[in-house]
Design a protein around this nucleic acid. Structure first.
Length: 307
DNA sequence: TTGTATAGCTCCT
DNA sequence: GCTATACAA
């Protein structure tokens, strides 16, 4: 199974949020045992657990930053530093409980922290990949290629990327939820019969994703209804424009298309050919859509797509 | 039905 | 980071 390494690093970092914020080492020392930083200890524990359960883990790390996500990442970084500042104040006030929570909210997983876990993977011969860009896309690729049976994560983006089998909320006892997209048509609240993967993705983007903020007044239910009416992007935008209650930017159709293509053509590592490849190889509509953009740098510094 | 605000949670002992 | 809940529009 592919494991979203960032999730475990983040949860592990929670256990030493204060030390990380203050730059205090979290590694224990003992003559007779090797200790890793506390956030790595947590990851190692989780890895051992799933190995014991008979699962071979493949850790996947986030890689380069995507230009599409810059706004989201800037906002997150700002909120994290604000939380750290607030935490410092709370420590001075003696409110240690709330301070810990603020420090926890201010957790940043840095590259050196990631590397600590990568070193452990090398020592313990645990397979891992560093995604060219987002781990979500890389894990989806591993699933689509049949290299992993499922994905362990907390991030619902995996479903938008088109991955069928995702395990959420996996706890220490090995309990969790499996979302299997093959059961989507059995959903009772909404009828997903004859709903394609692309329709599902377009619904997700309309409802708001990391690559495009949602329109005020449009949540998942409305997004579902719109996509049910038409799957054509210009037509979707026309439907939204028809209703004056939805505030929509001039560039929305372009922005929507860029978000859609960022999911479809996300650059991933092709482990068979040791090269980079788009997550989906296809001709037809998506290619026509991407050919409308002279600047394809939103797919990353070296955009890949099929002609 | 949706947005916003609010509060609670991840760790470990 | 995610999730649940209440309440207003």
């Amino acid at each position: 199974m592919a494991v979203d390494a960032s999730c475990w690093l983040h949860t592990g970092a929670y256990s030493c949020a204060y030390e990380l914020a203050k730059g205090i080492p979290t590694r224990q020392y003992c003559k007779f045992a090797i200790y890793w930083p506390r956030y790595v200890e947590y990851c190692v524990k989780r890895i051992s657990q799933i190995i014991q359960a008979g699962v071979t883990p493949v850790l996947v790390f986030d890689g380069g930053r995507l230009p599409m996500k810059q706004n989201v990442e800037k906002a997150r970084a700002k909120s994290r530093s604000k939380n750290k500042e607030e935490a410092e104040k709370l420590v001075l006030e003696g409110n240690h409980d709330l301070a810990f929570k603020k420090f926890a909210e201010g957790i940043t997983i840095t590259a050196p922290m990631v590397y600590e876990l990568i070193k452990v993977c090398k020592e313990k011969k645990i397979e891992f990949f560093v995604a060219p860009y987002e781990a979500d896309a890389q894990m989806t690729y591993l699933y689509k290629e049949g290299y992993v049976a499922a994905i362990i994560t907390e991030d619902s983006d995996l479903l938008a990327f088109g991955c069928d089998r995702v395990l959420f909320k996996l706890d220490n006892e090995g309990y969790g939820y499996e979302i299997n997209m093959k059961n989507l048509e059995n959903a009772t609240e909404l009828n997903f019969a004859n709903f394609s993967k692309d329709m599902f993705l377009k619904m997700c983007i309309l409802g708001g994703c990391d690559y495009l903020p949602s329109i005020k007044g449009i949540g998942l239910k409305t997004a579902y209804k719109i996509v049910k009416e038409t799957t054509d992007i210009p037509e979707i935008v026309r439907i939204i424009k028809r209703d004056p209650k939805y505030p929509i930017t001039q560039t929305y159709q372009e922005d929507f298309t860029r978000a859609f293509l960022t999911f479809k053509f996300h650059t991933v590592y092709d482990f068979n050919n040791k090269t980079l490849t788009p997550l989906n190889k296809m001709q037809g509509t998506p290619y026509i859509e991407i050919s409308n953009f002279t600047d394809k740098s939103f797919l990353g510094p070296y955009p890949l797509y099929y002609q």
